[in-house]
């Protein structure tokens, strides 16, 4: 966490010589980003064009008419714009908080397990859902919620309740979607936290134990403060995606049920539903660009706030 700016200005060549192995290690990533993210970047201008094909892509791009901000209108023209933005932001804020708090608690708990084999088993079990496709997850959820033969309704009918038509009742879905999202993603952040905890200097704990600190006191005063950089980094990264949603979660898991649209419609599903049949790449680029710009602005703001409080913990 040494701040680069406080150091004497070094030229690129010296920095490179000093960190040559690190540069070489990052080279594949740099090339990948250059080719797949920076090289095609000019195409974001498609969002401002009435794209029409005329020969190859670059030629079509140059000859297409400029559209100004026309392509962005469709996002706000429907009466549902407020609902869509509300859903997108609220779900994401809840997800960002839960995806930091819950994996952190689980990581702290798993770290305290003495039996290494059991600890590994828990980690793997919690990590597996992360690798499942949302389409598969949607069937798992359906097995629980199926109105006729679902697990929940079977239990309900055992107690003499009437079955619930889950796919018709919007009120349950904020909870269902949040549960599914957290269940699916818990493993990833948990592994990051576990790795960070393992890297902490053991001597702090030894000193604390000598002073008679309890487990809780150790966690509160050593582990958590030492983990803040990781926490802050994860938070800033997550904020960048605040205008994006997991399409599978909001489209596949509710089985594209129209009755649930008031709680499952987000920017991504709106763009998908509205544009698939038209295939207009100008409009879809506009949607994507808006998501990126909002994410970028929020990352800069969050980073700025973090910087104000603690310079050394900001990302850039």
């Amino acid at each position: 966490m040494v701040n680069q700016k406080n150091k004497k200005k070094t030229n690129f060549r010296e920095t490179f010589k000093k960190n040559r192995p690190l540069f070489i290690l990052s080279l594949p990533g740099i090339i990948w980003f250059a080719i797949f993210s920076y090289l095609p970047m000019f195409a974001i201008l498609v969002a401002f064009k009435h794209f029409k094909l005329n020969g190859n892509f670059i030629h079509s791009f140059i000859t297409s008419d400029w559209a100004g901000f026309d392509n962005f209108k469709f996002l706000f023209s429907s009466g549902d714009a407020a609902l869509i933005i509300r859903n997108t932001l609220l779900y994401n804020i809840v997800f960002i908080i839960l995806n930091i708090v819950i994996p952190l608690i689980v990581a702290l708990a798993i770290n305290e397990i003495f039996n290494k084999q059991l600890s590994k088993l828990y980690q793997s079990v919690l990590f597996i859902p992360y690798f499942l496709s949302m389409v598969v997850v949607s069937y798992v959820v359906f097995a629980f919620l199926d109105p006729t033969s679902g697990f929940f309704n079977a239990v309900l009918s055992m107690f003499g309740h009437k079955p619930i038509q889950f796919y018709m009742e919007p009120k349950y879905w904020p909870f269902i979607l949040t549960t599914v999202q957290v269940w699916k993603n818990i493993g990833y952040n948990m592994i990051i936290f576990l790795a960070a905890i393992c890297g902490l200097d053991k001597s702090y704990y030894e000193a604390a134990m000598l002073d008679g600190a309890s487990k809780w006191q150790q966690t509160k005063s050593i582990t958590l403060p030492m983990l803040t950089p990781v926490l802050v980094m994860l938070l800033i990264m997550a904020v960048g995606g605040i205008f994006r949603t997991d399409f599978g979660l909001f489209y596949q898991v509710p089985k594209n049920s129209g009755a649930l649209i008031s709680v499952t419609q987000t920017i991504d599903t709106y763009i998908y539903r509205g544009l698939t049949s038209m295939g207009d790449i100008g409009l879809s680029s506009a949607g994507g660009l808006l998501q990126s710009v909002v994410g970028f602005v929020l990352v800069v703001i969050t980073n700025g706030i973090v910087k104000k409080y603690d310079r050394s913990q900001s990302l850039f």
């Binding site: 549902d80 129209g258 509205g274 698939t276």
Partner: peptide, 18 residues
């Protein structure tokens, strides 16, 4: 009328199946 159609597609998918 692309914007209108995009919005209408969304309305349609809300009611179509049910």
């Amino acid at each position: 009328v692309t914007s209108q159609i995009a919005a209408m597609q969304n309305v349609d998918s809300e009611f179509k199946k049910t």
